[in-house]
């Protein structure tokens, strides 16, 4: 019945997730709460931005995740297309809604932050525009998964869409940059110290980023397991119907 990849790996994944998931969830919760509490209660205000600088602990990690989740989907899509590894395709499917929420958080906190700082909720700044485009890519990707009944066809099509979409997302980024110069500051966490935000802000920021990453890992484990359960249920129901 099928190759070893089709059956053994989801089972192995489920077994691993049973062990890993509780720990990652606890670690994610602790790190996230610690980072946000540290950022919210125990950091000074910026001399120019006042207390709004505290939004950075949500805005930057969410923005980073928005991009990295898509990147993770790109990698798992490639793995699916090359190795036909089912868990890989399902992990991409499981990650997409998390990515779109991260994009949404980045956009919303950005708008709330931009209102007092730049005097506007929204501007066609390159980074804002790029994130809005990324949001549209996520929407299309999720919609395509929902629209197709056959799970393997859906996995193939969404994987190709993800790869083509990645190329166009990068192209759009450059196009948008060319189209309008921005309001954003340069890199906030580059190694070049002069550009960096000060240490009092950056240490809790790193904790928050770690928290977001851990939360994402926990969610992907959980959601991928859900998808595997769902697919197994579907397969069993189909077999029952056949007799």
């Amino acid at each position: 019945m099928g190759s070893i990849w089709e059956y053994a790996n989801p089972v192995k994944f489920i077994r691993t997730s049973e062990i890993v998931l509780p720990w990652v969830s606890i670690l994610a919760t602790v790190t996230l709460i610690a980072g946000l509490v540290w950022g919210f209660f125990f950091t000074p205000d910026d001399y120019r931005q006042g207390s709004t600088v505290k939004i950075i602990y949500l805005h930057v990690p969410a923005a980073l995740m928005a991009i990295n989740v898509w990147f993770m989907m790109l990698v798992t899509s490639l793995v699916w297309l090359i190795r036909r590894h089912h868990v890989s395709a399902l992990a991409a499917k499981a990650a997409a809604p998390v990515g779109i929420i991260m994009t949404l958080i980045a956009l919303v906190t950005g708008a709330i932050w931009g209102q007092p700082m730049w005097g506007t909720w929204w501007a066609w700044d390159p980074r804002l525009t790029s994130f809005l485009i990324l949001f549209l890519f996520y929407l299309g990707y999720i919609a395509l998964w929902e629209a197709i009944d056959n799970p393997d066809t859906a996995a193939d099509l969404t994987a190709v869409l993800c790869i083509v979409g990645s190329v166009f997302a990068v192209l759009s980024r450059y196009a948008v940059n060319f189209w309008n110069q921005g309001l954003h500051q340069g890199a906030s966490l580059s190694l070049d110290k002069k550009e960096n935000v000060a240490d009092v802000f950056s240490t809790p920021l790193y904790v928050c980023i770690a928290g977001f990453v851990l939360l994402f890992i926990a969610l992907v484990f959980l959601r991928t397991r859900t998808e595997i359960h769902k697919r197994r249920t579907k397969a069993l129901l189909a077999r029952e119907r056949l007799g």
């Binding site: 549209l136 759009s172 196009a175 948008v176």
Partner: peptide, 10 residues
């Protein structure tokens, strides 16, 4: 339309 329009951006 939802899939194609973002690809049309550049």
């Amino acid at each position: 339309s939802l899939l194609v329009l973002p690809l049309y951006v550049p």
